[in-house]
């Protein structure tokens, strides 16, 4: 339980840093760290395959997408950076306070419940469920990947007028 609580605190802290840090690049790194911590948590919640996906896709692939887009778009002079830092401090100072207050209030509530479920009729195995029982989702995923390919073709194809 203690380990879980440490992981959860780390998760929230990483998310907070992601939102608050001034440099966009650090924000992307923070997001990857949040993903990595989340994947540890998912692994501890008896879901190893989803944890692997979270780690490789979210902390890996999405991090790469963000890094590429940030290096393409970001050109900040030091003076602009200083003013932006001040702006962000004025905009973001309430966030940690809100988070801490919410955390304190919510941990005070004593939540008690039991989880009763109707008897399981399907096997509890991710491979069987994903490949044998959810064909419609698989079809949807294939179509979405196709859509992504079309989107990349349409959005990134060379521009005629410079």
């Amino acid at each position: 339980m203690v380990i879980n609580i440490i992981i959860l605190i780390a998760l929230v802290t990483a998310a907070l840093w992601t939102a608050m840090t001034t440099r966009l690049l650090r924000s992307a790194v923070g997001l990857a760290i949040t993903s990595a911590i989340l994947s540890i948590l998912i692994f501890r919640l008896a879901s190893p395959i989803a944890a692997v996906f979270e780690l490789s896709v979210c902390a890996g692939l999405i991090f790469a997408i963000f890094i590429i887009s940030i290096t393409v778009t970001q050109r900040v002079t030091p003076e602009a950076f200083e003013t932006r830092k001040k702006e962000r401090m004025t905009k973001f100072w309430p966030l940690p306070i809100i988070v801490i207050i919410a955390a304190v209030v919510l941990t005070q509530i004593h939540f008690q419940t039991t989880f009763n479920l109707p008897a399981q009729t399907t096997p509890n195995d991710v491979k069987i469920i994903l490949w044998n029982l959810r064909h419609l989702d698989l079809l949807g995923q294939i179509v979405i990947l196709l859509t992504g390919a079309f989107g990349v073709v349409i959005l990134f194809k060379e521009w005629k007028n410079g």
Partner: peptide, 23 residues
Amino acid sequence: GQTGLAQALAITLIVIEVVVIAI
């Protein structure tokens, strides 16, 4: 106790998430 189902859903969610972020 339905970790199989939840993982299947989470994996689908992650695949879709990547495409949305890319677009």
